[in-house]
Computed example of a mutant assay.
Amino acid sequence: MTTKSRIEWTESTWNPVVGCTKLSAGCKHCYAEVMARRLQAIGVPGYEQGFRKVRTLPARLDEPLERRKPTVYFVNSMSDLFHDHVSDSFIDRVFQTMRSAHWHTFQVLTKRAERVVEFTSEHEVPDNVWIGVSVENKRHGVPRIDYLRQVPAKTRFLSVEPLLEDVGDLDLRGIHWVIVGGESGHGARPMRVEWVRRVQRACDDQGVHFFFKQWGAHGPDGKRRSKKVNGRELDGTIRDAMPAFGSALDVGR
Rank of each mutant, 00 (worst) to 15 (best):
K223C: 08
W215F: 08
G207L: 04
F210G: 11
F211T: 13
N230L: 07
R224Q: 14
G236Q: 06
Q206E: 13
G222H: 04
D205L: 00
D235K: 03
C203V: 04
G222K: 05
T237R: 13
G219P: 09
R232D: 09
H209W: 06
K223A: 03
R225C: 10
G222N: 02
R232A: 03
G207A: 12
S226Q: 01
G222C: 01
H218Y: 03
R224N: 05
D205V: 11
G219F: 04
Q214C: 06
G207D: 15
H209M: 13
V208M: 08
D205W: 00
D235V: 11
V229H: 08
F211A: 10
Q214I: 00
E233W: 00
K213C: 05
L234F: 10
K228V: 15
S226V: 11
G219R: 07
F212E: 05
H209I: 09
K213W: 01
A217Q: 04
A217D: 04
V208W: 00
E233L: 15
K223Y: 01
K228T: 15
R232P: 11
D204T: 14
R232G: 03
D235E: 14
S226D: 14
Q206S: 09
S226K: 08
V229E: 15
E233M: 13
S226M: 06
A217P: 02
C203Q: 10
D221C: 09
F211N: 04
W215Q: 05
R225H: 14
Q214A: 09
A217N: 09
Q214K: 10
V208S: 08
D205F: 08
F212Q: 07
R225W: 07
R225D: 10
E233C: 11
D235F: 02
A217V: 09
R224W: 08
F210N: 14
G219W: 00
F211G: 07
A217R: 06
W215D: 08
N230Y: 06
D204F: 06
P220Y: 00
D221L: 01
V229Y: 12
L234C: 06
R232T: 14
F211R: 13
G231T: 10
D205K: 11
D235N: 14
R232S: 01
Q206C: 10
Q214M: 04
G216T: 04
G216K: 05
K228G: 13
N230Q: 02
G216I: 08
G207Y: 15
P220N: 00
G219H: 07
K213R: 07
F211K: 13
K227W: 02
Q206N: 11
E233H: 00
G231D: 05
F212R: 12
C203S: 10
K227E: 03
G207W: 15
G236K: 04
R232F: 01
T237K: 13
N230F: 01
W215E: 04
C203E: 11
G216Q: 07
H209C: 13
F212D: 01
D204K: 15
K228I: 15
F210C: 12
R224K: 12
N230A: 06
D235R: 03
H218N: 09
D221T: 13
G236V: 10
G216H: 08
D205S: 12
R232E: 02
H209D: 12
K213S: 05
R224T: 12
